[in-house]
Amino acid sequence: MQNLCFPEPDLTLTSHGHDTKPFAWAGIELTIPAAWETGHLGDGYALLEHRYRPVLEMKTATIRGRFNFQRHFKALTRSGRTRSAPPLRLTPLPPGWPAFSARMDVQPFAWQGDHVGGRGLLLYCRDCRKATLIQFYDHGDHRLAAIPDVLASFKDHTSGSGPTVAVYDIQATLPDRFALTRFQFDAGRFELVFTRSREGVTLWRWSPADVILDRCGNTLSHVARNNGLLPPAVIDQNGRPVEGGLEWQWPARGYRHRLRGFFAHRAPPPGHALRIWHRSDSNRILAVRGEAIDTFDTFEGICTSYGAI
């Protein structure tokens, strides 16, 4: 009897046929090979993997006060768990790696452990005062060939064209100054919370959609209710149908909100809104909730930009 085996997937191609994809986290944007996957995310930290092995690690922080290369380099390269980290060597910029803007201080480095090595850069942008450490793990294979292209795509302050967040299989673009304040990535459920002054935006993603819909009676409104996305005031209302999903809007109930409308001599903005939709092509359910959003166009723009990579 013969076993049916699936062929090894071609990890150099994405579902849409491109061999690269965007990666954006903690204000850093990169274009990475499509086969690289998000491995671990933290506050100002990201680890990317390829075939279950680390391939790129990134740490970033905004520097307060005066930037000291040696001190911040030491702080960013400090490892909490490794007792005897291999020594770092400061090196000149390797041939083939891109040159960075004159407003950036760049220090390449390399290290070699028993089984794995690494090379990378510490970058400091004098404009946005952000220090970023990027290192590529060297497992002795072809993965390092992608370094020049990945580094050439590096952006540490928003260009206005790229996504605000592009991790795992989701990406979204938010207006300026929306900061990520909370995030949770559990198997099957992602949640990202952004805030700007009193405005708030929450993104959700569930997978696999068919199983979740099956448990919720095949209706998106049940998914929204079961996950506590709707306040008691509108929990019994049927959502307004939008393309592939449902939408609810409800006014904000704070005195600040009413005063804002009063002093602006216009009707107060819509307040809060929730949109939930099903992406059957990728078997995902996506939802966006906007709280005290300035204009409804902002909410619409976020919903339009939010999707699967």
Partner: peptide, 25 residues
């Protein structure tokens, strides 16, 4: 375990990292 994760990932269309976390747990 890796083969189970891959197969699970194909059949459910979840992200590989999610499949790994869910299957190993």
């Amino acid at each position: 375990v890796r083969a189970i994760v891959r197969q699970f990932c194909r059949q459910t269309q979840v992200h590989p990292k999610e499949a790994e976390a869910a299957v190993t747990r």
